[in-house]
C-alpha cells in the first residue's frame, strides 16, 4: 500500500524567547511529518512549547531556524508563514470567535477572508454536521463553551484545509462536554479526510489519535 501524501512537514524548527535570565529555548530542532487523513497528538506539560510548535506549524509565528510547510492543493508543500489560512485550519482553546457575529457569520467570515463569499450553504451544512443546525443565528455569548468550540471547528473546516491544528480544544470545557467535542472533532476530520494535529494534556484524548508524540525540553519524541 503506497504511503499517504504528506500534508504537513517541519524540519529543524527552533524557537527561543528572551527572558531576564537570558534566551529561553522552547524548541530544539523539531522535525515532524503528518500524512493525509492522519491524526497526530502532541502532549507535554504546561510551558513545554506545544502551543508555540502549533503556531510555527500553522505560520502564526516565525521560527528562529528551520521551516514548516503544509500542503496546498495544486501547489504542493508551501511555507506556512507565507500562506496563512490557506491550507490549515485552526481550533483554539478559547475559541477565538468574533463576538459581534453569530455562529453562521463566524463560519462564513473564514470563507469570505479566503475569497469565497458564497459559502453560506456549506457553512450551514458544516454547522449542522457539528450539531448546531438550530443555533445558526446565535451570538457566541448566547452559546455554551462546547457550542462555541463546535462553531470554531466548523470555521476551521469551511475552507477545506489539508490539515487541522487544534490547540487544547477541550481545555476550557468540562469533562463531559470536552469528551463530546473531542468525539465530534475526530469524527468530522475522519469523515472529511482532513489530517489533525491535536495538542492536548489528556492522555485519553491523545490515545484516540493515530500517532502520539510528546514534547519535552524542546524535543519532540514518539510517546
Amino acid at each position: 500500500m503506497p504511503e499517504a501524501e504528506i500534508v504537513l512537514s517541519a524540519q529543524g524548527l527552533q524557537k527561543s524567547f528572551a527572558s531576564p535570565a537570558g534566551p529561553l529555548v522552547v524548541l530544539r530542532s523539531v522535525d515532524l511529518v503528518v500524512h493525509a487523513s492522519e491524526s497526530v497528538s502532541i502532549r507535554g506539560s504546561s510551558g513545554s512549547g506545544k502551543t508555540t510548535l502549533l503556531q510555527l506549524l500553522g505560520g502564526l509565528d516565525t521560527a528562529d531556524a528551520g521551516e514548516a510547510n503544509f500542503l496546498l492543493p495544486g501547489r504542493g508543500l508551501v511555507p506556512a508563514r507565507k500562506n496563512l489560512g490557506k491550507g490549515v485550519g485552526f481550533v483554539f482553546q478559547n475559541y477565538q470567535l468574533m463576538p459581534e457575529l453569530n455562529a453562521l457569520e463566524n463560519v462564513l467570515l473564514a470563507a469570505q477572508v479566503a475569497g469565497r463569499p458564497a459559502a453560506a450553504a456549506e457553512a450551514q451544512a458544516l454547522l449542522e454536521s457539528v450539531g448546531l443546525g438550530g443555533r445558526l443565528r446565535h451570538l457566541p455569548a448566547q452559546l455554551s463553551g462546547g457550542e462555541c468550540q463546535r462553531v470554531a471547528i466548523a470555521r476551521a473546516l469551511i475552507n477545506r484545509p489539508s490539515v487541522l491544528l487544534a490547540d487544547e480544544p477541550t481545555g476550557n470545557l468540562d469533562e463531559a462536554t470536552g469528551a463530546e467535542v473531542m468525539r465530534l472533532l475526530l469524527e468530522v476530520v475522519a469523515q472529511r479526510g482532513t489530517a489533525l494535529v491535536l495538542v492536548t494534556h489528556s492522555r485519553e484524548f491523545a490515545a484516540r489519535t493515530d500517532r502520539q508524540w510528546v514534547l519535552s525540553n524542546g524535543v519532540l519524541s514518539p510517546a
Binding site: 489560512g85 468574533m98 467570515l109 477572508v113 479566503a114
Partner: peptide, 16 residues
C-alpha cells in the same frame, strides 16, 4: 487586536 490576530490566522491579507 486579538480579533485582528484571528483574522490574520484565517488568512486575511494586510490589504484586507
Amino acid at each position: 487586536s486579538r480579533e485582528v490576530g484571528v483574522l490574520v490566522a484565517l488568512g486575511a491579507r494586510r490589504l484586507q
